[in-house]
């Protein structure tokens, strides 16, 4: 004889709890955390290189970057003098909240991937501005570069303040409609590779109409991270969100 037992439990409850714990921690530590998501090859790493180059001089910034394999992204971003930690998901298509908790601990302890792979000749720029030992004892901005994927990262809350979605012209304007969840949950949408738009059939109005149908309040930043156009709007947006979350 079998008996039925009511469970009524969210299967991803453990991730939600870990994300809530991350959120409390980030609030306590006063760091603004943004989760940057896109399909593979949209330009997240290039944007973070530019961001590290520019904002890394002005705020205490660190990056956690997720990929299935290699430390190539951490090497690229860390070269610009910002503590960067690589998470290798080993085949998994997304980052989970417990991995962020561990990575944040590692960052705090000074274990940055770029230090291991590049030698320790490059100290974080802000370490010169009075932080003991060059360790990120206090951060202003933590960017999580999620695994390139348009499907799975939407299901896994990491405890971030904001999700930001990046879509590049070469991917096609139909993507917001075809992969609605990630666009629905994002505060901002970056349209990247705008320099290539004249050479593609990417219809900006159609992409934005779908994105806004799914998420009417989504903020839009058009840029070419590679050419540098539109980067200032992104820096301003990040600084404004950092200030706004600090006031909360």
């Amino acid at each position: 004889m079998s008996k039925e037992i009511e469970v009524a439990r969210d299967v991803l409850q453990d991730n939600r709890e870990n994300a809530a714990s991350n959120r409390r921690r980030f609030g306590r530590e006063g760091v603004y955390v943004v989760n940057l998501m896109s399909g593979p090859g949209a330009g997240k790493t290039t944007l973070l290189e530019r961001t590290a180059e520019e904002l890394g001089k002005r705020v205490r910034m660190a990056v956690i970057t997720g990929d299935i394999a290699t430390t190539r992204d951490a090497d690229r971003i860390g070269r610009h003098g910002v503590p960067t930690l690589q998470i290798n998901t080993g085949g998994a298509c997304h980052i989970e909240a417990h991995q962020i908790a561990r990575a944040a601990d590692d960052l705090k302890a000074g274990h940055f991937t770029w230090e291991l792979s590049q030698g320790s000749q490059t100290l974080p720029r802000w370490s010169a501005a009075g932080e003991a030992g060059g360790l990120p004892t206090r951060l202003d901005l933590l960017v999580i570069e999620n695994v390139g994927n348009l499907v799975c990262p939407a299901e896994f809350d990491l405890g971030e303040h904001d999700k930001v979605m990046m879509l590049s012209c070469t991917e096609g304007h139909d993507k917001p409609g075809k992969y609605p969840l990630m666009f629905q949950e994002s505060r901002a949408l970056i349209l990247n590779k705008m320099d290539l738009q004249p050479h593609t059939n990417f219809d900006v109005a159609a992409a934005l109409a779908d994105a806004r149908a799914i998420n009417p309040s989504i903020e839009v930043i058009k840029m070419s991270a590679w050419k540098g156009e539109g980067l200032q709007a992104w820096f301003d947006w990040l600084l404004a969100r950092m200030a706004a979350t600090r006031r909360m």
Partner: peptide, 22 residues
């Protein structure tokens, strides 16, 4: 109007299990 607030459809929920203790 397109879009809207999602009331249902995001579930990933373990509802019940059946146990055989024999």
């Amino acid at each position: 109007t397109p879009g809207g607030e999602v009331l249902a459809g995001r579930e990933l929920r373990l509802d019940t299990i059946d146990i055989d203790d024999q």
